[in-house]
């Protein structure tokens, strides 16, 4: 039988674990849902609360999964969503 891979790779800790956060500008969203549908890592889901325009914007449900592919930003017709690297924000905090 083919080998089962169960072990944590020895170099797993050495891989820089970049964290990303996804920002959503709720009031801009037109609720098309493209970002939710197209996210390859299922980071987003439809929010329960309507925005001012009467649309349901996305909400972040699984931020740790985000790989910063940036597709949500690309597909958003209203420029209402964008991911950023967490590290950059940390640096700001130190300053």
């Amino acid at each position: 039988m083919p080998v089962k891979l169960w072990r944590k790779p020895l170099d797993a800790d050495k891989i820089p674990k970049l964290q990303y956060e996804v920002h959503i500008i709720n009031e801009r969203c037109d609720g098309c849902g493209f970002c939710i549908d197209f996210c390859p890592k299922d980071v987003l889901a439809r929010a329960e609360k309507m925005n001012e325009k009467g649309f349901y914007p996305p909400q972040v449900i699984n931020e740790a999964n985000c790989t910063f592919c940036g597709f949500c930003r690309s597909v958003c017709p209203t420029c209402a969503i964008f991911p950023i690297e967490k590290i950059s924000r940390n640096i700001k905090e130190v300053e």
Binding site: L5, P9, I15
Partner: peptide, 14 residues
């Protein structure tokens, strides 16, 4: 951006 275990290294590396 994707990291997974490497089959060649029997999952000991990525």
């Amino acid at each position: 951006p994707v990291t997974v275990p490497n089959e060649f290294d029997v999952g000991l590396a990525t």
